[in-house]
Computed example of a mutant assay.
Amino acid sequence: MTYDNLKLTIDANIAVLEINRPKKLNALNRATIQELHEAFKSLKDNDEVRAIILTGTGEKAFVAGADISEFADYSVEEGKDLAAKGQETVFDYIANFPKPVIAAVNGFALGGGLELAMSAHIRVASDNAKMGLPETSLGVIPGYGGTQRLPQLVGKGRAFEMIMTAGMIDAETAKNYGLVNHVTTQDELMELAQKITGKILRNSSQAIKAAIKAVNANDEDGVDGFKEEINAFGEAFGTSDFKEGTQAFLNKEKPKFS
């Protein structure tokens, strides 16, 4: 499948998906959001792909925000629909994706761009990265999960400060806050993302899928995350990967997961 606003390459079980609108600093418009949904849907069904690295084209921006020109004249109902559809088709879809998603944040990750990075399971950043949620400076609030995921990652107080001031933080501050896992140079960013992904691929895809679901269960209203973990733990005993992993361990061999 070809895309107008994305680049997709697949190699050694890893898909690299780039938002490719460099002249717009990779800003998210409706077409890009739709293509992101289509791309992730195809990657979910692709048995060759076991992990995804999500990044932006160029050296300036991961995603510099949403394309404001598209919604500047929206009504209340259109605004609600914009947020609901975006969360359902992309942001929540990525957060609950059954394969690990690593965001490689190069440059600006602002507004919807930071929300996109926060939807990923792991974030690494280049040392020139700048992150923030500037929506209140436009008279609106984050609408793609920013008010929910940011406090989970950095704590309520810091989330309030970032949202209320509409300011940006640098990569090292983001690391200290727990917003990103690692910081490296821009030249080494993709290499680091590939290295982390390579470590993930040594392990059971069946177990990782269950772990993603169990971790996310803690954030769902009315769901007992501990109960979800217990169920997933028990069900793992019936998988081929459990048999392979335990036998390899007992035989002092490296497991060969299916």
Rank of each mutant, 00 (worst) to 15 (best):
A236V: 10
I212P: 01
K195L: 07
Q152N: 08
K175Q: 14
D73C: 08
Y93H: 13
K175V: 06
S126V: 07
E229P: 00
M118I: 07
E172P: 05
L192F: 05
T32K: 00
K213R: 12
Y74T: 15
I208N: 02
A83M: 12
I10K: 03
H37C: 01
T9P: 01
K41T: 12
V154D: 04
V105A: 12
K209R: 14
G143Q: 10
I208E: 04
M162Y: 04
P255C: 05
K209S: 14
A64Y: 14
K156F: 09
A159Y: 11
S258A: 12
K209C: 08
Q87C: 15
F237W: 12
A207C: 05
K23H: 06
D224V: 14
L110N: 02
S205P: 06
P98K: 11
Y177D: 05
N128E: 11
V124P: 00
L179S: 03
I68Q: 07
G65P: 00
L192R: 05
Q206V: 10
A171H: 10
A120T: 05
N231R: 14
K256F: 08
V76T: 13
T239W: 13
A174D: 02
D73W: 12
K130A: 05
P134V: 06
N106T: 11
K24L: 09
T246P: 03
F237E: 12
K99I: 09
L54E: 01
D219W: 07
V124A: 04
E228L: 07
A214L: 02
F249T: 10
V183G: 03
D187S: 13
F257Q: 06
G222F: 06
V76E: 15
I53F: 10
V183M: 04
R123C: 09
R123G: 04
V140D: 09
H121E: 06
L82V: 09
L153W: 07
D11E: 14
V124N: 02
N218S: 12
